[in-house]
């Protein structure tokens, strides 16, 4: 475990908790894409199926449980408890266009043609594009609440920190995983314009609004 990976996991955890708290405290999921949250729940489910069969460390198992629990709780809050505040008019990105290609690619390009490995690969490909419905929603509404932009910044930073973690592991252990690396690069690239807006606007106290 190196510092980049630890900070990456921390950033990911902060993002997930920020979102859950935002919805719970404001009792509203306005500006949040339920579809992205469904995709994240699928990502964690398909990636952590080895939760009980494959013990790596207390840290690893407990973080997986937290991620899965929080992601399902978030989906429940959006589509269950606070569905009256769900912005279904704008949250219209066709997630089947993300699910099907990820599934096909997972069958074609993977490290090992076993069920667990193909599901892991599917979760990696899906995670790289899972934020698209959320970014699409922000672009359609033209703005995002400040707390939502903090959520997106933490979420985007997590995979950026993982890229640094893989760089570190390559030079220190000669370890690399092209599937995770290339997906992580795509995932991080999708946040670039958001990162620019966040740093140039939100950090100066302005609201995150996209140029109309």
């Amino acid at each position: 475990m190196n510092v980049f990976r630890f900070l990456g996991d921390l950033s990911h955890l902060v993002a997930i908790v920020i979102l859950l708290l935002k919805i719970w405290k404001t009792r509203s999921c306005s500006g949040i894409s339920g579809r992205s949250q469904i995709l994240f729940a699928i990502v964690f489910t398909t990636r952590y199926l080895d939760l009980f069969s494959n013990f790596i460390s207390v840290y690893n198992t407990s973080m997986k449980i937290v991620y899965i629990t929080c992601s399902y709780a978030t989906v429940y809050l959006i589509y269950g408890k606070f569905k009256a505040t769900y912005d279904f008019n704008h949250d219209t990105f066709r997630i089947e266009f993300l699910l099907v290609p990820s599934a096909i690619l997972a069958f074609l390009v993977n490290h090992d043609f076993s069920p667990l490995e193909i599901l892991w690969t599917f979760s990696i490909y899906l995670e790289s594009v899972a934020i698209l419905p959320q970014l699409f929603l922000v672009s359609k509404t033209g703005e995002a609440e400040t707390i939502t932009s903090h959520y997106l910044f933490a979420l985007g930073s997590y995979r950026l920190l993982y890229l640094l973690n893989w760089l570190w592991r390559y030079f220190s252990q000669g370890f690399y995983d092209l599937i995770a690396l290339l997906s992580g690069i795509l995932q991080t690239v999708l946040y670039c314009d958001f990162f620019y807006l966040y740093i140039s606007k939100v950090l100066k106290g302005k609201k995150l609004s996209l140029p109309a």
Binding site: H12, N54, M63, K64, H111, S114, L116, N165, A180
Partner: peptide, 10 residues
């Protein structure tokens, strides 16, 4: 499981 199939990252 052999090394590479074992994913130790989250």
């Amino acid at each position: 499981a052999d090394g590479d199939a074992l994913h130790d990252e989250l």
